Computed example of a mutant assay.
Amino acid sequence: MRFARWRAAGEHGSAGSVREGVVASVEGVDRLVAFDDGTTVRDLTRAGLPAALERGQAAIDAAAASGALDRAPVLADVELLPPVEPASVRDFVAFEEHVEGVVKSVGGGAVVDAEWYDAPTFYFTNPHTLVGSGATVRPPATERLDFELEVAVVIGAVDGREGRDLSPEEAGDHVFGYAIFNDWSARDIQAREMKVRLGPCKGKDFASTLGPWIVTADEFAGRHDDEGFLPIGMEVLVNGERIGVDLLSNMGWPFAELVAYASRDSVVVPGDVLGSGTAGNGGCLGELWGRRGELSPRPLRAGDEVVMRVEGIGEIRNVVGAAAPAPEISRARPRPRNRPAAVVA
Rank of each mutant, 00 (worst) to 15 (best):
A262E: 09
G314P: 08
V18A: 09
G233M: 02
E311V: 03
V344N: 10
L44N: 04
V18C: 00
K204D: 11
A157R: 12
A221F: 01
D272A: 06
E100Y: 09
E20F: 11
E96P: 06
A157M: 11
D188G: 07
I243N: 12
A65V: 03
D165G: 03
A119Q: 14
E241K: 08
E305Y: 01
P327S: 06
L295R: 10
E287N: 03
T40C: 10
G108H: 07
A221E: 15
E54N: 03
A4Q: 02
P168R: 04
D205P: 07
A179K: 04
D37A: 08
K204W: 11
Y261N: 05
G172P: 06
V22P: 05
E79K: 14
A152Q: 13
R192K: 15
S296D: 15
P254Y: 04
V151S: 07
P336E: 06
A191C: 04
V175E: 06
P340N: 07
H12V: 06
D70L: 10
I329T: 14
L32D: 10
H174R: 05
G290S: 01
G101F: 02
G312M: 05
G282P: 08
A24P: 03
D113F: 15
G282Q: 04
A332C: 01
G244D: 00
V151K: 00
C201E: 15
M194H: 11
F206P: 10
L32K: 09
V268L: 12
W6T: 05
V93A: 14
L210A: 12
R42L: 15
P140R: 09
A47T: 13
A141K: 10
H224M: 14
E294L: 12
S17N: 11
V310A: 11
V238C: 06
A52Y: 00
A59T: 01
V111W: 08
A34G: 11
R339K: 07
A64S: 12
A262I: 14
G233V: 10
I329Y: 04
H98Q: 06
K204M: 02
V310R: 02
A217G: 00
A332V: 13
A72H: 12
R292I: 00
H128W: 14
G108Y: 02
V310C: 10
A52F: 01
T129Y: 07
G38K: 09
G108E: 13
E169Y: 04
A4P: 08
G21T: 09
R331G: 15
A4M: 00
D43G: 12
V18Q: 06
D36K: 12
A302K: 01
L49P: 05
G321E: 04
S105H: 05
F3R: 05
E11T: 15
L32Y: 15
V319R: 15
A186C: 04
L258W: 12
P297L: 05
E54I: 00
P50E: 00
F181S: 07
R264L: 03
S105R: 09
G252Q: 13
A221G: 15
T142W: 08
A171E: 08
R90N: 01
V153Y: 13
R164M: 13
E96L: 13
W184Q: 04
A9P: 08
A141V: 11
R192S: 14
L166T: 09
G56P: 01
E11W: 00
A186F: 11
V154C: 04
G38M: 06
I189R: 14
R337G: 06
P270L: 00
V154Y: 05
N182C: 07
